Amino acid sequence: MPNSSAPSPAVSASKPLVTIVALCHNHALFVREALDSILSQTYPNVEVWLVDDASTDDSPAILREYAAQNPGWHLLLLPENVGNCRAFNTAFRQSRGELVIDFATDDVLLPERLSQQVAAFEAAGSTVGVVYSNAELIDEGGGRLGLHHRPDGHGGLRPQPASGWVFAEVLRRYFISTPTMMMRRACLIQLGGYDEALAYEDFDFWVRASCDWQFVYLDEVTTRKRKHPRSMSSRAYRRHDPYLASTIRVCEKALALARTPAEHAALATRLRWELRQAARRRRSAEAQALFALLRQVARPRLLDWALVAWSQLVP
């Protein structure tokens, strides 16, 4: 395993420092591949924070091993599970990078990831807070499942990426592959980091960041995103999970931020989609909360009323 040393002063002066916050919770099966992908980066100026969120498998031992072999890396072994948002903030607030990556250690960075995204930031204006890209989806064993942004057969991609001022698009639909994001430190500082009251971070970050910062899509595959039964995304919308409650809280924030008819229409589209998910799982309280928000931005349709009624039926 190669050794990673701190960048020289000359490199530091010429290239922005990139902080990688590597978040681990019971990723022993994947964490070596993830950390080796940090070591394989062609970009020279990197600060690494290894954060273990109270894993119960062999992850802490593996992180200690890599920290010992790479003395420039920082290691945080949290004594209790605090969740992704607080774990990230704990490292971010001690870090120094001008640009930041939130890296789950069940995913993999491709070697040119940092170089490509830093170049995109350098070519962009100072109002760009996020550069994101395409991802290769892989299964638990590393087998290829396809792409996040896949060809639609008509010269475009599905889901269609968006660049620029993307607030309305963020409200309307999911299109960003979260593990591919590189974030400007100033953007995260302005937001106060992630909202630690939430069960997950990405939707809330997109909503709050896109009000004041532009997003740029880089048409490159930079990351391998692993889909497996223990991943955070696989748990969303399950019965009794906390994710839907967090989504409602973010929609409440979005309602306070939305100003134009187009933004209200985009939020209505989002609320109707979330209402369908709540109704399918008989999440009656959440369905009623979403319906109440919907009524503040759009006139309810017959289907909206029907979904609320359906959510109250005993499964």
Rank of each mutant, 00 (worst) to 15 (best):
S5T: 12
A6W: 06
K15G: 00
L17C: 11
I20A: 05
H25C: 08
L29F: 02
L29S: 14
F30S: 14
S37G: 05
S40K: 11
Q41N: 08
Y43Q: 12
Y43V: 11
V46N: 09
V46F: 03
V51E: 03
D53F: 09
S55M: 09
S55N: 10
S59G: 14
A61E: 15
Y66V: 04
A67Y: 11
A67H: 15
A68W: 02
N70H: 03
N70Y: 12
L75T: 05
L76P: 04
E80F: 03
R86M: 14
A87H: 08
F88H: 13
F88G: 04
N89Y: 09
T90G: 00
R93F: 15
S95C: 10
I101A: 07
D102F: 01
D102E: 10
A104F: 12
A104W: 10
T105Y: 10
D106W: 10
L110Y: 10
L114H: 04
L114T: 12
S115Q: 15
Q116E: 14
V118G: 03
F121C: 03
F121Q: 07
E122Y: 00
A123D: 02
A124Y: 05
G143E: 13
R144I: 09
L145Y: 10
G146L: 03
H148N: 13
R150C: 08
G155Q: 09
G156K: 12
G164Q: 04
G164Y: 03
V166H: 06
E169W: 01
L171F: 02
Y174A: 12
Y174S: 12
T180Q: 07
M181D: 07
M182R: 04
M183S: 04
R184P: 04
C187H: 08
L191E: 09
G192W: 08
D202T: 01
W206L: 13
R208Q: 14
F215Q: 05
K225V: 08
R226T: 05
K227A: 06
P229T: 04
S231R: 11
H240W: 11
P242N: 11
L244I: 13
A245P: 00
V250W: 02
E252H: 04
A254N: 01
L257K: 06
T260D: 06
A262P: 02
E263G: 05
R270M: 04
R270I: 06
L271K: 07
L271S: 02
E274L: 15
L275G: 07
R276S: 06
Q277V: 01
R281H: 13
R282C: 10
R282P: 00
R283T: 01
R283H: 13
Q288A: 15
A289H: 09
A289Y: 00
L290N: 12
L290Q: 07
L294N: 06
R295W: 05
A298E: 15
R299P: 01
P300R: 07
R301N: 00
R301Q: 11
A309T: 08
A309Y: 08
S311F: 09
Q312T: 11
Q312F: 02
V314S: 13
P315L: 07
P315G: 14
